[in-house]
């Protein structure tokens, strides 16, 4: 699970500072998918950056799977990302020289026991299993240039699950896909969240996906508020 308590993040803006996240609190439990929607510049990406430990907030606490990330230094946060946080990028951000299966096993190379032959073999087995789960078992040895946009995004999702993360942070995964492929990716994320028991934060610009999520929040000017009037949501 992930818990953000009263998080504020500011950035320098000339001689003053601009508030990107303003006293935001958010709790996502295991197996839940929480959506965040908001206009461009509302602070969604900044919130994701804080939730994924890429940046430390000015104030407030971030707790991931029982570890207070805001107490950690840079190396400690990198370690936390390697072991407990899965990141699904907006662009698939695949490394051009690696095959699909290597995009996943590269995360194992970032851990301390990467040199163990057994650890490498286990990582490859898990990578192939995850590629199978996202429907790419037959494309494991293809490079990004040989995959379609939807397939690349599936590899992106599978890579995020490689380290058995407690938290999945997903940044507008459908922005570069057509409607049908976008819906397939959301289906995939919801299924994998349930199957892997991750706490998933999903930033999206498409309201049509919100009814399918556990809860949804809107973000405006850095302030986060729960959406109670999601069209199509149960009870709305």
């Amino acid at each position: 699970m992930i818990d953000l308590q009263d998080v504020t993040l500011t950035f320098p803006d000339g001689t003053s500072r601009i508030t990107a996240v303003d006293h935001a609190s958010l709790h996502v439990g295991a197996g839940e998918t929480v959506g965040i929607i908001g206009p461009s510049g509302s602070g969604k990406s900044s919130l994701l950056a804080v939730a994924s430990t890429l940046i430390a907030p000015d104030s407030g606490t971030v707790t991931i799977d029982g570890v207070v990330a805001t107490d950690l230094d840079l190396a400690g946060r990198a370690e936390l990302r390697r072991t407990r946080v899965g990141l699904v990028f907006q662009q698939s951000n695949l490394l051009s020289s690696l095959t699909a299966v290597e995009q996943l096993t590269v995360t194992n190379e970032l851990t301390t026991d990467r040199r163990r032959r057994s650890a490498r073999a286990a990582a490859r087995r898990r990578a192939l299993q995850l590629l199978d789960e996202v429907g790419l078992a037959a494309d494991a040895d293809k490079r990004p240039a040989q995959l379609s946009g939807g397939q690349r995004q599936r590899v992106n999702v599978a890579r995020a699950l490689m380290s058995r993360p407690a938290v999945l942070v997903v940044d507008e995964p459908t922005s570069a896909l057509d409607q049908e492929r976008g819906a397939q990716i959301i289906d995939l994320l919801l299924r994998l969240t349930a199957e892997h028991g991750t706490a998933t934060i999903l930033v999206t610009h498409e309201p049509r996906f919100l009814p399918r999520l556990t809860t949804a929040h809107s973000m405006v000017d850095g302030r986060l508020s729960e959406q109670s009037d999601r069209p199509g949501a149960p009870g709305s």
């Binding site: 990198a78 370690e79 990141l87 490394l95 590269v106 970032l110």
Partner: peptide, 8 residues
């Protein structure tokens, strides 16, 4: 990307 994934 590698740094975001946890590379030092």
């Amino acid at each position: 990307v590698l740094k975001a994934l946890g590379a030092t």
